[in-house]
Amino acid sequence: MSINKPRIGLFIGDATGIGPEIMVKVVAQRKVLSNCFIIGIGDHRVFRLGQKIAQIELEYPVYDDIAEVDSSKGNFVFLDLKNLDPKKLILGQISPISGKVVGDSLKLMVQLAISKRIDAVVYAPLNKEALYRGGYPFKGEIGFFAHLMKVKDGYGEMNVLGELWTSRVTSHISVADVSKNITQKKVLAAITQADSTLKRAHIEYPKIGVSALNPHGGEGGLFGREEQKTIVPAVQEAKRLGINVVGPYSADTIFLRISTEKLNAIVTMYHDQGQIAMKLMGFSEGVTVNAGLPIIITTPSHGTAFDIAGKGVANPNALKEAILLATKMASWQS
């Protein structure tokens, strides 16, 4: 194995969900390991449980200290944190114990990335409620990561499906609170974040489409004035900054413009406005990028799938895509 390959830290995710299973299934695929060196991170007992569920046995070195990891031993090794006994958990149920371990483990991974022990962080699905109840008072992991790295603004989630990226102005808030949070400053921030992130992904002059908030783009104010008051001025300001941006386009047609307008990214106004479209187009392949942070962090766009946890039927493709994207991004930065 070449020591020049990106070192990807791969966390097992919430142990009560499908994370251990899909991690095993991904590691078993040679294509995933061909361009990177993966350090699996978590409790090894949980990873062994994942192998049992997936009915796949893997051979790999296990380490207690990352300083001892030998990258010449193959393309995959496991760093055993010894921090979670799976016998204390019930698959498919929210566990504050598992949530705390998730928070503790991700905190460690951020430290490893900042200290250059790993080149990117990839994690299998976690459960936000479990994380919160486990002692990490954040509504989502992006806020948690920003807190750890003391990033105050300019960060947010981006979703990737194939060559299409999406960003959003608001995220994990009540639908009732969306409109009052659509400000010119926040719309412009989402556009500039999309532009800078895609340029980091080696797309030199990305074309970004911006979605409207109201039906039919507000119909000149008949159905709402957010477009006129905030979204259009933000788009105009982004153009003055040299960003290749178009819109706002009606939310019910903007995804139809991907090919006709050759869009690289779409900025939506709220969570489900973009996520419904992305998951319809490729639920099992979508990736979330925690953008605007000093390190690379990716994860599948889907959740812990408690309803099928332990059944051995989980699809690992989104986790695979998260690893492949993180590998590309790490290679671009090297």
Rank of each mutant, 00 (worst) to 15 (best):
V122P: 10
I90N: 13
V77Y: 04
K87N: 11
L161W: 08
E129C: 00
F138W: 06
D104F: 08
I114E: 14
K87Q: 15
L91A: 09
D80L: 04
I94P: 00
H147I: 00
K87L: 14
V151N: 02
P86E: 06
Y136M: 12
M158P: 01
D119W: 03
S98T: 03
K87R: 13
K100S: 10
S72H: 08
V101W: 04
K73E: 15
I97Q: 12
L91G: 14
K73M: 14
E141Q: 13
V102N: 01
Y123W: 09
F144H: 03
H147G: 01
V102R: 00
S72P: 01
L84Q: 02
K152F: 05
L161R: 13
K88M: 15
D119P: 05
V110E: 11
A130C: 07
F145E: 00
A146W: 01
L126N: 08
L91V: 15
A146H: 02
M158W: 07
A113S: 09
D85R: 09
G134M: 04
I142N: 06
L79T: 00
L106D: 03
K128P: 12
Y136C: 08
K152I: 08
Q93R: 13
F78I: 06
N75S: 13
G156V: 15
S115I: 07
F145A: 01
A124L: 04
F76S: 06
L89A: 08
N127I: 05
P137S: 04
I142F: 04
S105G: 12
L131P: 01
G92L: 13
L79R: 01
E129V: 07
A113Q: 12
P96L: 02
G99C: 11
F145C: 01
R133Q: 08
A113W: 13
G156S: 14
G156R: 03
L108F: 15
D85V: 06
S115P: 00
G103H: 10
I118K: 00
K150A: 14
N127W: 03
Q111A: 13
R133C: 04
Q111D: 11
K152C: 07
K128L: 15
H147N: 14
K73D: 05
P86W: 08
Y136V: 14
K88S: 08
I142L: 05
F76G: 12
E129T: 06
V77I: 11
V77H: 02
G99I: 10
S115T: 09
L148Q: 10
A124D: 06
R133W: 02
A130Q: 03
A113R: 13
S95D: 15
M158K: 00
L106M: 15
